[in-house]
């Protein structure tokens, strides 16, 4: 499923990194610990988190993740968005918490496959 398709299906906000909306999502990874994501999230995963700083994008780029999804109405820091544009990785947002939104993403990806 493309990032743009998930965005439409779950009515997610797009904060920036729009050129990354055509990336393919191969699955998801929900974590707020950066080393957890660094060590264990695979390429193409959607990263669901409440972290909103620039280092999130650095990791997303290093790990070739498909997009970031911020939970609980969190707003990205300005320098996070700057790097999102540079790297072409979309930053999405939801008002729901990690548990709720992870469930919806999981179901959406399952229906699609």
């Amino acid at each position: 499923m493309l990032v743009s398709e998930l965005k439409e299906k779950l009515n997610l906000k797009v904060f920036g990194g729009n050129s990354g909306l055509n990336r393919e999502i191969t699955g998801g990874y929900t974590s707020d610990l950066l080393s957890d994501v660094m060590g264990f999230a695979d390429q193409g995963k959607l990263w669901i988190t409440l972290q909103t700083h620039r280092n999130v994008m650095a990791i997303a780029s290093l790990k070739d993740l498909s997009a970031i999804l911020l939970v609980k109405g969190q707003q990205p820091d300005a320098d996070m968005l700057e790097l999102a544009e540079e790297e072409g990785i979309a930053v999405l947002g939801s008002d729901e918490n990690s548990f709720e939104v992870s469930g919806k993403v999981f179901n959406s990806l399952m229906q699609k496959s």
């Binding site: 610990l33 950066l34 080393s35 972290q51």
Partner: peptide, 15 residues
């Protein structure tokens, strides 16, 4: 608070 410092870094290196 930034999500670093979970004591996983050196493990990630070793692995």
């Amino acid at each position: 608070e930034m999500g670093f410092g979970a004591g996983m870094g050196l493990q990630n290196i070793r692995n």
